[in-house]
Write a protein that binds this DNA or RNA. Structure first.
Lengths: 104, 104
DNA sequence: CTGAACTGCAACTTTCGTGTTGCACCACTG
DNA sequence: CAGTGGTGCAACACGAAAGTTGCAGTTCAG
């Protein structure tokens, strides 16, 4: 469960990939279209899209001879929920430790 | 705002760093103590802790001659909220596009 | 005061990721 | 049926990150 989060964070941790995601969040686009907006080659973007697809943050849709990608907000929200759960667990744990410390 | 998220994701994207965080989430510990639990040298862990501290996911606490680190769940929850907001925006955007498409 | 434990800094190696260029293949257009 | 625009794969270069070892500096214990 939480172990599967790491590759997702690694995918989100690259600035170029984040820009791609933000752009796709506004409107679905192909790798070629993205390469005209961003200062990177099409092949580099295609590779980024493959990484994003592996962790389920993006989905390819064939439209004629081009492949458009759209950002999956649901997957992002799901990741956010998992993160929030972990954060809450840490805070709870810390609160318990404090109670024990005060009890001494 | 969201741009500052990227370094945080990069920090969370490393498996070793994630293990460190999980361990600290259970109980605060020093770099030396962590190096005995994890299969990495103390210096490597110290460097990871510095990275985690830079993005505010961890906090150092001096206890005598040792420096213990504790995981900050609040920072994690904050990141989760920002993520959820972005995900919701994408879904909303996509819903709008669909409405327009249906309207044609 | 001697020693042990913990931390911090530095140099070095090695692996991995990002980005590039080049070429081949496929699908739509005229 | 050419030709163009889009995609995919492969090889290569470069820089950053992760890990290691070694050494110096501190602070607590005996």
């Amino acid at each position: 469960m939480s172990a599967a989060l790491v590759p997702t964070f690694a995918a989100l941790g690259d600035p170029t990939r984040w820009e791609i995601l933000v752009t796709l969040g506004e409107e679905p686009a192909s790798a070629s279209a993205l390469s005209e907006r961003l200062p990177v080659s099409r092949q580099a973007i295609a590779r980024h899209l493959a990484v994003l697809h592996e962790v389920g943050l993006v989905e390819p849709v064939r439209v004629g001879r081009e492949v458009r990608y759209r950002a999956l907000g649901s997957r992002l929200s799901q990741t956010a929920d998992a993160l929030a759960a972990v954060g809450a667990a840490w805070e709870r744990r810390l609160a318990t430790i404090r109670e024990i410390a005060e009890g001494l």
